[in-house]
Every structure is written in C-alpha cells, then in structure tokens.
Design a protein around this nucleic acid. Structure first.
Length: 804
DNA sequence: GGATACTCTTAATGT
DNA sequence: AAGAGTATCC
C-alpha cells in the first residue's frame, strides 16, 4: 500500500550544507565551569546515555553544551535532533546552543544549519505532513484542539445512538485519549472491549476517527499515535528518519508516554525491546535527560518506567547522576527533599547543595481565599521592597505564584490589582480562546482546509446571515449522504432537499464569499509582501465579524465588547509577525521549495497556534509577577515563589484521593513547585474556600504536615484580625509538623447499609464499579467509579445496582 | 429562523 | 459562580 512514499529529504528540515570547516568554540570552553558529572555528560557522545538530573542541577546547561560539543566534534548539525515538550523550552535551547556556537538565530550559519530542536508535537506534525500518504492523511490536515474534539465526539456519540448523558463526551474523550497514548487504535480497542459500555465507547472511538478524517483533521494524540505508527510500519519513513538523525536528545524524558517512547526508540534505532529493528553499527546515540521525581503527567499517559527502565532497554547505556542543586537555598532544598522522600515508588537519590544560610520556608494559614490572596500580595510587596534583613529586594519578574488549578487565579488577581502588584498569567491559549478570535480563526481554518466541518459549523451563521440550525442540519445531512464535504454540499445547495428559498440564497452568498478568499490566494504569492496578514484582515472584514463586533461595542458598553475589535486587530498583527519569522525552508508543506503560497503560510500559522502551550507564555521580560499552574511551572525558576491552596482536595487534588500512584504524583507536583524557588518560598492554605458558590471548611494539605519543622516557619493567621498569628511552628524542634486541624478532621458521613464505600457493584448499563461515596437518606446518591467510564453519581433508588 | 429567559449542571493538570 | 443547554417567545 505504500507506493511512492517520499523519503525524508534533508530539505524537509532545512537545507543541509557541508560540515562546518572550523568550529568556533574550543572543547575547553564548552566544559568550562561544569562539575565533574556535568562534564561527563557533555563529553559522553556515543551510545545511549541516561542523565538523571535532579531539580536545579543545571540540566539545560548540560544539554545545550552537549549539543554544541557534538557539533564541535564534527557531527554535522543536521544529524542532531533534540526534543522538548514545549515551544519555550525548544526556543531557549536553540538560542543557547546558537550562542554557544557563536551564531545568531535566523542567520545562515554552517555550524547550526539543519540542527533540529523542536517539540515532539511539532516534529510529528511535520513528519505527518511530509509523509501524509503513508500515514493515511492529506498533507494539509488541520490540528483539532480539545474544543473541536468535544464537538466531534458529541456527534459521534449521537451517531452511535447513545445518550450524551450516559456517555459524557468529556469522559469518553478521556478514554479515547488514554487509548491513543497507549498506541491503541479504534480497531484494537474494539477487539479488547468486553463489557457493554466499553463496546459502546469502541464504536464511538471508531466513529470519532472517521469523522476526524472526513474533516481532514487530526487531534493532539493523533500527532503522536500516527507518527509512531508510520515509523513502525513504513520501512522507508523509518529509514529516512534514522538516516537523517544520528544523534537524538530528549528532555523531560520522565514525561514521555508510550507513543513518544516508541517514536524515540525507532528514530534512535534499536534497543533491547524493539523487534526487527536494524541496529546501527555505532549503537544508538540516544541521550535522555529527566528526573523521575518530577514526573507530573501520568494522567496524560506519561509512563515513568520509560526512564526507570532505560538501562534495561539499552543495556549499553551509561548513567550519569546530577544531584547537586545550584538553584535553591539549603532550607528550601531540605524541605523539598524531606517531602519527596515520602513517596514509596521512587528511587532515592541525593539532592544537595553546598550553599549555607537562607531563610526558612514560610507556611501561612489563612482565613479564606480573599485573605490568602491579600497575604500573598503583601508578601510579594515585602519581597519587592526589600523588607528582609540585609537582603536586596526581588524584582517583580523574579517572583511567581503557583496554584493547582486555574480557578484559583481569579481571587489572586483582584488582590494583586488592589495592592498594585504587576502580574501576568501564563495561559498560552488565553488569547486564542476568546470568542472573537476563535471565530476569526474558524473562518481562516475553513480557508485552509475546506473539509473542516467543525470550523464551518461554527462560523456559518456568525454573524447571522440566515443559515440557521435547521437549514444547516439539512445541508450536513445531504453532505453525509452524498459523501462530500459540507462546503461542497453548500456549493450544490440547489440539490439539498427541503431548504427554503431564503436559505438557498444565503448559502449561495456565503459560498461565494469563502470562494473569494480561496481562489486568488491559491496562486503563489509572487509579490512576497504581507500576504498572510492581508488575508487575515480581509477575512475579518468581509466575513462581517468586524461589523458585528463594532455594533456590539456600540450598544453594550462593557469592557470586553470594546476589547474585541482590538483583539481582532491584534490577530492581524500576530499574522504579520508570523509572516516575518516564517521560514519556508523548514515548512514541509512548501513542496515547491520556492516562494510559499499564502495557503502554505496560513496552514503553518494555524499549526503554530494549535501547538502553543501555557508554558510558552511565560515571559520574564514583562517585569511582572507570573501566575501559573504547578504544571506550567516545571522547568522554571524564580527568586521568590508563593504556592497557594495547600488543602486536601486541591493539592492533593480530590481526584487523586483514591489512588496511591495519583497521590504520589500530587506530591511530586508539590515538589516541583518547591524546587522552583531560589531564595524565598511562601506556602499558604486557607481555612475556608469558596467552591461552587459556597464557602466550605477545608482541611490543610497532608503535604504541609510532611514538611520538616526545622526548616519551616508556620504562622496561623486565620483567627487573628489584622495582626500576626502565633508562631506555633517553632515549638516542634524536629520531625514533621502536626496540624491540629488535620487531626480533628470531620468524621465521615454515616453510610447506608446496602452499598458501603468500597464495595463492588454492577450496573445494568455501566458494568462493574466500586462505590466511592454514599450521601443523603431519602434521595440517597451513590458515587461509583466504573471501569473505563470514570466516576458517576447515581440516584440510589433508580440506579438498579447490584452488589457483586 | 432567531433571540431571549430560564433551568440545569458542573469543577484538573495541557500538547 | 458561571457556563451550557433547553424552553419559550417573537
């Protein structure tokens, strides 16, 4: 089936010049100032290498120097592939390597040309576009985000004649996503499904996949899954990749999932577990860097055993441990180390610093979330204004606030405004999540990919132009029956049955509008110039979006309405900016190799938007305190850090309560937060927190009681009005901190006899499950965790549960 | 067909 | 508290 598969040419990832004649840096300069183990890691260039890099141990330094050293040794840069998880990490790495090699990014340079430093997802997108046919895709596929996925999965559930009440789109999507991360496609999933509900999900999975392909789209998980599949099944693609990349480096290896593991293993070529893989003569030059204690993406399918079993998989592997921390003060490090030692499933490893002195870690217990926000805002002010004895103040940009869930940022923001603390929130997609931007992008996505049914459905009647739900449903149905795309069906609107004359007219006009954007622009943009931003601007105006938001801004005087037009203008600027930085040489869609068409550029632009991460939005040059989730904080460091919401149910999160591995992941998350701090760390909890509109009593996080008292100063500010609380943390001179609140945690609610918590039950539709909780008397409800379906709350009286 | 009012549910982390 | 989804009205 794989005829004429194009192989991976050097041009796919930039032009490849002859090897550099004389490298700029000397070998000595590249290991200058490194510790002994760091040096070893840099100099170990051949064969598999595992670098266990503890938090703050200079990991990035080692990776970048190692890449530079490889080039120094005469390895052609295009043979080097370095993979990260975020664009920001890739960008930083690129920048540092370039500067080590004495180059500037963007410059045409022989020392760095063809060097590939990118994210897993970008790499996969590029490979899939280049080898689309082998992957069963069209090269101009769209990348669907989670909102798009939800739309598709909802339709798929309905198409399978299931109810979205019993099969919640979100949870079904979760099951599908997990399967994909484990490299299980719809067919395999169906084969291994036994019980009723799993079989239903298998049908949905299959129907979901079909719908995605019909829309000429892939989801995030597909990027990895399909790449892994193409690499393992297609000889030529595999050979091309192995040929091209002789040296592979992977950052944050503890967070790789099965798909990523397979991609890496295949490109590296060989390894104990791989069957039928041709071993390289020189042995796989794969270098992975990570820290099992910072594995926080298990919920996304990441598998710690990838890093834990690296040596077993590559018996020839060398292992280097970087345990010395150069980031944090001794007390902060001691607190982190003491906490992480609680994890049972863990390899104990040293984490140390030669530094002495440093402030204790502060733990403040607050009254409620408002109070907590105030305490944090004041603390940041104090740090900034250098209230410390002898210490110099921290710049705003040197400080950050971490929280477990995004919802916690709101109250924090209010307090920061009140106290005049400048701040930015690290949400990469925030801009693109706005309604007006999503609408504009949906228009553009239809231009880029006329099969994109989700985007088309979104904009077909925005602004309203007389194509309502009924008409659109009929057009969609006609498209389904005729096996054409919805846009094609709209072209043939005269053939669609039961449409009103008005709807036919409106549709014709709409189609003409869209055609107008596509036709002249499919031609090559010979003139160069600002074609992409022009297209974006045109679409915003001609679609009527601009007029619509103008009208809205005129009538309603709310701030958000006024901002919408500005945001649309900003989108045009962002397109112009992208255009400036766009490198046609590295775009696999630019098959001609010549001047790219506007469509090529548009697709590249949309792809770059689809792949932005929250962490990408962290920009210290802003001169403000950064607010972010603990997940986004990984890999960063700040002079001062405040971690909020250390409460049971929040950190550790409610959903982790039932499982030991999940609980340990929460602990690692807490560990990651602590180890971001260089000099000062404040941890807060709140006695009451408003959730779901109601203020509820909280229980302090178990992690607080797992901190070493000698390095922590606890203050209870909760029942003091205004002033300082009692410093009762000092009375414990050794061992763990005890929290009186944790000790007198409210007793569990009394349980009804027939279904005690923990018992196994069977539901006629959902199958087997385990009872999580029982509440109420008259209208008693049971919360049951069903196999594969997740947790559901049922009304006991109607649930028809039987005990197993 | 489209807009509005109401009820209802509903809470993680993110490429 | 806020958003989504439904019911109802024009």
């Amino acid at each position: 089936m794989d005829f004429d598969v194009p192989i991976l040419t050097d041009a796919d990832f930039g032009e490849v010049p002859p090897p550099p004649a004389k490298p700029a840096p000397t070998a000595e300069s590249l290991v200058d100032g490194l510790t002994e183990p760091q040096k070893q890691a840099v100099l170990h260039t051949e064969g598999p290498l595992l670098v266990l890099a503890a938090a703050g141990s200079g990991k990035t330094r080692v990776i970048t120097r190692r890449i530079a050293y490889l080039v120094h040794c005469g390895v052609p840069p295009w043979q080097i592939l370095a993979l990260t998880f975020t664009n920001k990490a890739a960008g930083e790495m690129r920048e540092r390597v370039f500067s080590l090699l004495g180059q500037h990014e963007g410059g045409t340079n022989r020392a760095t040309r063809g060097l590939t430093i990118t994210t897993f997802h970008s790499l996969c997108a590029r490979l899939l576009r280049r080898h689309a046919e082998a992957a069963g895709l069209k090269p101009d596929f769209a990348i669907y985000d989670s909102a798009d996925q939800l739309t598709i999965v909802k339709k798929a559930i309905e198409a399978c004649q299931l109810s979205t009440a019993n099969f919640q789109p979100r949870s079904v999507l979760g099951v599908i996503s997990n399967a994909k991360n484990d490299l299980i496609d719809a067919e395999q999933f169906a084969q291994s499904s036994l019980d009723f509900s799993t079989k239903c999900i298998a049908k949905v999975y299959s129907s979901y996949t079909t719908a995605l392909r019909r829309a000429n789209a892939v989801d995030f998980d597909d990027l990895l899954l399909l790449t892994a599949r193409v690499l393992s099944r297609n000889e030529q693609v595999r050979a091309a990749c192995r040929d091209r990349w002789q040296y592979l480096m992977i950052d944050e290896y503890q967070d790789t999932n099965k798909a990523q593991f397979q991609i890496a293993s295949i490109i590296a070529g060989g390894g104990g577990g791989e069957s039928g893989g041709e071993l390289r003569t020189s042995g796989p030059n794969i270098c992975v860097v990570g820290d099992p204690d910072q594995a926080i993406y298990g919920w996304r399918g990441a598998d710690i055993s990838n890093i834990l079993d690296f040596e077993r998989y590559y018996p020839a592997a060398a292992t280097i441990k970087l345990g010395e921390n150069f980031r944090s003060t001794a007390p902060i490090l001691a607190v982190a180390d003491h906490l992480i030692k609680r994890n049972r499933r863990r390899k104990d490893k040293p984490l140390f610093t030669v530094k002495t002195g440093g402030e204790k870690v502060e733990v403040n217990k607050c009254r409620d979330e408002r109070h907590e926000a105030t305490v944090v805002a004041q603390w940041l002010r104090s740090r900034h204004e250098s209230v410390d004895k002898g210490g110099q103040g921290l710049a705003w940009r040197e400080m950050a606030i971490f929280y477990r869930t995004n919802a916690l940022s709101r109250v924090m923001e209010e307090a920061l405004r009140e106290y005049n603390v400048p701040y930015t929130i690290a949400r990469g997609t925030a801009f693109y999540d706005r309604e007006e931007i999503k609408n504009a992008l949906a228009y553009l996505r239809v231009v880029a990919n006329s099969a994109d049914s989700v985007s088309l459905g979104r904009i077909v009647n925005v602004p309203s132009r007389g194509i309502g739900d009924t008409s659109y449903d009929r057009i969609e149905m006609f498209a389904d029956q005729s096996g054409v795309t919805v846009l094609d069906a709209m072209h043939r609107v005269g053939e669609v049955p039961d449409l009103t004359a008005r709807a036919v007219n409106a549709t014709t006009k709409f189609v003409q509008m869209v055609d107008g954007w596509i036709s002249p622009n499919t031609l090559l943009a010979a003139a160069g110039g600002s074609k992409l931003s022009e297209l974006v601007d045109r679409v915003i105006r001609e679609s009527g979006l601009e007029a619509m938001y103008k009208a809205q801004a005129a009538t309603s005087k709310t701030e958000t309405d006024a901002e919408r037009l500005d945001n649309l203008a900003e989108l045009v600027s962002s397109a112009a900016e992208f255009e400036q930085e766009y490198d046609p040489g590295s775009d696999p869609m630019n098959t001609t190799g010549g001047t790219p068409s506007v469509l090529d550029m548009l697709r590249a632009y949309l792809e770059s938007i689809a792949l932005v991460a929250d962490a990408d939005a962290v920009d210290p040059s802003q001169g403000s305190v950064t607010l972010m989730t603990l997940h986004a904080a990984k890999g960063l460091e700040f002079g001062g850090v405040a971690m909020i919401g250390l409460e049971e149910g929040l950190l550790p999160h409610m959903r982790a309560q039932q499982s030991e591995p999940a609980m340990e992941e929460e602990r690692r998350l807490c560990f990651v937060g602590i180890t971001r701090a260089m000099r000062r760390l404040l941890i807060t909890s709140s006695n009451y927190r408003t959730m779901r509109g109601m203020s509820e009593r909280t229980i302090p996080s178990r992690f607080l009681s797992e901190l070493p008292a000698e390095h922590v100063s606890v203050r209870n500010l909760s029942d003091v009005s205004g002033g300082l609380g009692d410093e009762w943390g000092e009375q414990h001179d050794s061992g763990d901190i005890e929290f009186s609140d944790a000790a007198r945690a409210p007793s569990r609610p009394k349980l009804n006899a027939p279904f005690p918590v923990g018992c196994e039950v069977r539901h006629p539709q959902f199958g087997l499950g385990k009872v999580q909780a029982v509440t109420g008397g008259a209208n008693a409800r049971v919360t049951v965790a069903f196999r594969g379906l997740g947790v559901k709350t049922l009304v006991l009286e109607y649930a028809r549960l039987t005990r197993v």
